[in-house]
Lab assay of single mutants.
Amino acid sequence: QNEKLANELKSLLDELNVNELATGSLNTYYKRTIKISGQKAMYALKSKDFKKMSEAKYQLQKIYNEIDEA
Rank of each mutant, 00 (worst) to 15 (best):
Q61E: 11
K48E: 04
V18F: 12
N2I: 15
Q59F: 14
A6G: 03
A44W: 02
Y58L: 12
Y43R: 13
L5S: 01
A70W: 11
E55V: 10
A56F: 02
K35S: 06
K46E: 13
D14C: 12
K46I: 12
E69G: 07
L45M: 04
E66M: 12
S47M: 10
M42Y: 09
A56Y: 02
N65S: 10
N27K: 08
L16A: 02
Q59E: 13
L45S: 01
K57C: 06
K40Y: 14
E20W: 15
L60I: 04
N65M: 13
Y29C: 12
A22E: 04
L9G: 00
N7A: 13
A6I: 10
E20H: 09
F50Y: 11
K4P: 04
Y43E: 15
T23A: 15
E20R: 10
S25I: 07
A6E: 10
Q39I: 14
S11H: 11
N7F: 12
K4R: 11
A41G: 03
Y58K: 13
S25H: 12
S47G: 04
K4V: 09
N17W: 15
S37D: 03
L26R: 03
N7E: 12
Q39C: 13
D14F: 08
K48I: 02
A22L: 14
N65W: 12
T33M: 15
R32H: 10
L16H: 03
K10S: 07
S25D: 10
D14V: 06
A41N: 01
K46V: 10
A22C: 11
I36R: 08
Y29I: 04
D14T: 09
S47V: 10
K35E: 08
V18Q: 12
K31G: 06
E15V: 12
I36V: 07
I36L: 09
M42S: 04
E20F: 15
S37G: 04
N27Y: 05
M42L: 13
A44N: 00
A6Q: 09
K51V: 09
K52L: 15
S11W: 11
L45P: 00
I36A: 09
I63M: 03
Y64I: 13
A70M: 10
S25Y: 10
T28P: 14
L60Y: 01
D49F: 02
E20T: 15
Q59H: 07
I34Y: 02
T33E: 13
N65A: 13
K52F: 05
R32L: 11
Q61S: 05
G38Q: 11
I36F: 06
E15N: 10
A22S: 07
E66F: 07
I63D: 00
D68F: 15
L5G: 00
E15M: 15
N65L: 12
A22K: 15
K4I: 11
V18W: 13
S54H: 08
A41W: 03
S54D: 05
A70C: 10
N7D: 10
D68C: 15
L9A: 00
A41T: 01
L16S: 01
Y64T: 04
K31D: 03
Y43Q: 15
Q39K: 10
L12W: 02
Y43W: 12
L9P: 01
N19Y: 15
N17K: 14
Y29M: 05
K31S: 08
K51T: 10
E55S: 05
Y30P: 02
D14S: 08
S54C: 12
K40G: 03
N19G: 05
K48V: 02
L45E: 02
A56G: 02
E20L: 15
M53R: 00
L26E: 04
A22R: 15
N27E: 08
I36Q: 08
T28K: 11
E69A: 14
R32Y: 13
K31I: 08
I67L: 06
K31N: 05
A22W: 09
Y43T: 12
K52R: 13
A44D: 01
A70Q: 07
A6V: 09
S47D: 04
A70R: 08
K31P: 03
A44S: 03
D49H: 03
E3P: 03
Y43F: 11
K31L: 08
F50W: 08
K40P: 00
Q1I: 12
E55P: 00
L21I: 10
K57V: 14
A41F: 02
T28V: 11
K57A: 08
T33K: 14
I63L: 07
L26P: 03
S54I: 12
N7Q: 13
N19R: 15
L60C: 01
Y30N: 03
E20Y: 14
A6C: 06
L13Q: 00
S11K: 14
N17C: 14
N19S: 06
A22D: 04
Q59L: 14
Q39D: 08
L13W: 03
I34E: 01
S11E: 11
L60M: 03
N17M: 13
K35L: 11
K57E: 02
S11F: 09
I63Y: 02
L5E: 02
L12Q: 01
L13M: 05
K52D: 04
K62Q: 07
Y29S: 04
L16C: 03
E69Y: 11
Q39N: 06
I34D: 00
N17Q: 13
F50K: 04
T28E: 15
E3N: 08
Q39H: 06
K62R: 08
D14H: 09
K4T: 09
V18T: 11
I63E: 00
K35R: 10
D68R: 15
M42G: 03
G24V: 14
D68A: 15
Y64F: 11
L5R: 01
I36E: 08
I67K: 03
N17F: 14
V18A: 13
L16K: 02
M42V: 09
Q39Y: 09
S11T: 11
K48M: 14
A41D: 01
Y29W: 09
A56E: 01
E3D: 09
R32Q: 12
N7P: 02
L21E: 08
S25C: 14
Y30E: 03
K10I: 08
E8N: 02
I34S: 01
S25V: 09
I63Q: 00
G24M: 13
D14L: 11
I36D: 06
I67P: 01
S37P: 01
G24W: 07
M53G: 00
E3G: 05
K57F: 14
M53H: 00
K46L: 13
T23F: 08
N17E: 13
E8R: 03
Q1Y: 09
I34R: 02
N2P: 06
N27S: 14
D68T: 14
I34V: 06
Q1T: 10
Q61V: 07
Q61H: 05
Q39W: 10
Q1C: 12
Y30F: 11
S54E: 13
D49Y: 02
D14P: 00
E66V: 04
Y58C: 10
E8I: 05
T28I: 13
T23P: 04
K4Y: 07
G38A: 14
S37Q: 14
I63P: 00
K51D: 10
Y58R: 12
A44G: 01
K62S: 05
L9F: 01
L45K: 01
S47Y: 06
Q61Y: 05
E66D: 05
N65D: 09
E20K: 12
K62L: 09
Y64A: 05
M53P: 01
L21M: 09
A41H: 01
I67N: 02
I36P: 00
D68N: 14
Y30L: 10
V18S: 11
T28L: 11
N65H: 13
D68V: 14
G38Y: 14
K35D: 05
K40N: 10
L60D: 01
E15D: 09
